[in-house]
Amino acid sequence: MVRRRTLFGQVLHYGLLIVVLAVMVGPLVWMLRVSLLDKTVSLTAQNLLSASITVANFTDLFAQSDLARYLFNSAFVASVVTLGNILFCVMVGYVLARRQTWPSRILFATVVIVMMIPVHIVIIPLYLICLKGGIYDTYWALILPFLINPVGIFLAKQYIESIPPSMEEAARVDGASELRILFRIVMPLCKPAIAVLAVLAFITNWNSFLFPFILTSSEDLRTLPVALALLQGHQAIDWQHLMAGSTVAVLPVLVLFFVMQRQVVSGITAGGIKQ
């Protein structure tokens, strides 16, 4: 649909785009600016525009707080969960895509149902399971329940269904084991889907707050969002440092998003759900 536009129409269009841009990106720019502001300076508009830039807030945080530890926790947990998601979602998605038996159909139905179940209502039993299972306040509590996720299975299944099974069948005739078929044939063919579900899993887990917050209590196990939320109520924290910490929490995801933009977008439009 190509239509000719008047100059006026174009100006109006760009004007609108830029206004929306300011609204959508403004708060994030504000965060970045405050994180680079001297901590003794107040946050007036004038200071934000004219005061010099310093990275002292960042160096302070790394030197005087456990920010490095929180960063590690976030990265570690999100990475392990992402790897788990890649492996397990493709594995299960493969079975669901290729087998038309009734157990497989029932299993797929459970995946779809769980996609619709609100997670927050199981916080109490999940808390108790972790407590009684002895994994409360350990990395396990941050990882185990999230290693596999219905959205990932759904994405993997849809994708695998779009690949003709001829290569797998050929390998099977050659006597390859199912495990070998999964890792040597299915996984490589699924690369695009894997990229999508990996990015989504990583971003979701990196940003996750409620579950890390309630399933751990040690300072050593805090992820960035938890640390930031708890830092806020603290006596001696100023906005400059808080925003520096926030920037650290946001930057990796923004970078990842820009690098993997296409995958994020296609994942969202295909699977449709992010927690």
């Binding site: 407590l131 409360y136 209590s217 300072e219 708890l230 109520g233």
Partner: peptide, 18 residues
Amino acid sequence: TNLTWANGHEKIVIGFAS
């Protein structure tokens, strides 16, 4: 063992309960 004001109380409750 160090507790924090944010969730020390919770930790004590769990400690006693378990």
